[in-house]
Simulated scan of single mutants.
Amino acid sequence: MSTSVRSLEARFFLVYMALFAPFAVLTPYLQQLLHIYGFRHDQIGYILGAVELTAVLAPPVWGLLSDRLGAPRGVLALTILLALPTFLLFTPGLSTSAAILVAFLFGFFCKPSIPLTDGMTFAYFQRLGGDYGHVRIGGTVSFILCCLVFERYVRISDDPTGKRIVITFAVLLVVQALSLLLIPRAPKQSSARPAVASSADVASADAPATLHLFLKPGFIAFIIAGFLARFAMMSYYSFFSRYLNEVYGFKNVGYIWLLGSLCEFPLIFWSRSIMERIGVRNLFVLGLVGTVVRLLGFGCQGGLWTVIAMQPLHMLTFGAFHCSSVTYVSRSFPTRLQGSAQGIYYAVTVGLGSFLGSAVGGVVLERFGYVTMYVSFAAVAAVAVLITLLFVPKLEKPAP
């Protein structure tokens, strides 16, 4: 590996550390903040679902803007800076409807940050070289360190007002925005390709071929499987902290969340080698199977140690699922469409899947309890496994 590639990976490693630091607040603690503000399970599901629903529209819009302007770093900076004031609109005393409106507004600026960063990373690496797993692991390191610091030093779970959650998130958003200064100038197009008149001419000429890429039956099946997997995992992402509080009386939830992230570390770091050995689609299947097993384990309610024993499966339910899915999308589309492609995939799976999973999960939890929610959502993930095995083709070569 050349020195320039190592330097590029080091820069993006730090970018991903800053990218996932705010999510180390949102993922475990936003549900806690909403509980502190007095919302029920189903209301929390609707509010968190509203945040996720914006991923249906926001990533494609911001991704298209990024591709059209040719300024992904500037577009990403704008979304981060606008996410901060909208998050601060979450205040005690909000009605459910008002909180949902705030969630929509916040999500529109917050949710595009990951697909925009992924699209930008793959665009750089396709032209200059680099290993996505080596830089994405920065997000895992950040999540682990943040959870430790939050629980041990910030004592974020001991604050009955939720102010520490709000302040910590605001500070880390500012850090994320500053980290974009580490990203080098956009790489130039290869000289082997002829120059084109304008992006509008390219879009017009390539429109039929581009549409064909998105409408391939195998890719549609992949999108459906990803949607179902994300739907199922929202029973974890939206309610796991409350599950630990209410079923096991465990308050310092960050420690158990970081255990899952710690276990994903080796898989993400060596994801490229693993995919070269077993294939991208097969790693995706392993992620789905891990989701089935993990949610069934939560549904058993065998004790806190059973929950802890399920946490290493995060290496599959997130590590394998995420690395294989973004790689599958990357290899399905040419470099010029990376922002749009990642945005559309993110919209359907993380956006629509997360919204429906969170909303439905909250209703099921409020009416039937944790066992029914986790077991039924495990069944949804099992359907995703079957769809992938039957209809999603192997895809090992990048799109031209």
Rank of each mutant, 00 (worst) to 15 (best):
Q342V: 02
G343V: 02
L386H: 04
L352D: 03
L390M: 12
V360E: 06
L352M: 12
Y346K: 04
V329T: 15
Y328C: 07
T335V: 15
L365D: 12
L352K: 07
M373E: 10
P334Q: 02
V329K: 01
Y346N: 14
R331P: 02
I387V: 13
V326K: 06
K394V: 09
S354P: 01
L365C: 12
K394E: 14
L390S: 13
F368K: 11
G353I: 11
K394T: 13
R336C: 00
G369T: 11
A384H: 11
R367W: 12
Q338L: 08
G369Q: 05
Q342L: 10
A341W: 02
Q342G: 13
R331K: 13
V326T: 10
P334C: 02
Y346C: 11
I344Q: 01
S332D: 03
V326H: 07
I344A: 04
V375E: 12
V360D: 06
M373K: 10
R336I: 03
V383M: 06
S376N: 13
V348T: 14
S354W: 00
I387W: 02
V348R: 04
Y345F: 08
G343R: 01
T335A: 14
G351H: 12
A384I: 06
A379D: 04
A359L: 11
R336K: 13
Y328G: 01
R336A: 10
F391H: 04
S332A: 11
V363D: 15
S340I: 14
T349Q: 09
S340E: 08
R367S: 09
P334K: 00
S358N: 13
G339P: 01
A341Y: 01
G362Y: 05
L356S: 15
A341N: 07
A381Q: 08
L365V: 09
T388D: 03
V392I: 07
V329F: 05
P393Y: 04
S376P: 07
V364R: 11
L365W: 09
G357A: 02
S340V: 15
S325L: 00
L395T: 08
L352T: 07
I344V: 14
V380H: 00
F355L: 08
L390P: 01
K394D: 11
G351R: 08
Q338F: 05
K394G: 06
S330W: 00
V348W: 04
Y346M: 09
G343I: 02
S376R: 03
I344F: 09
V383R: 13
A347F: 03
V375H: 15
A381Y: 03
T335Q: 11
G351E: 12
F377R: 08
A381C: 04
V364I: 15
M373D: 09
Q342S: 07
P334T: 04
F333Q: 04
V326E: 03
A379N: 06
G357K: 04
V375G: 04
A341P: 05
T349G: 08
Y345T: 01
G357S: 06
A381N: 09
G357W: 03
G362W: 09
A347D: 00
E366P: 03
V329A: 07
Y346E: 11
F355A: 15
R367F: 02
T335Y: 01
V364F: 05
T372L: 07
A378I: 08
F333N: 02
S330I: 00
F391S: 10
V350D: 14
G343D: 01
I387K: 09
S376H: 05
A382T: 15
A359Q: 13
L337F: 15
F333G: 07
V385M: 04
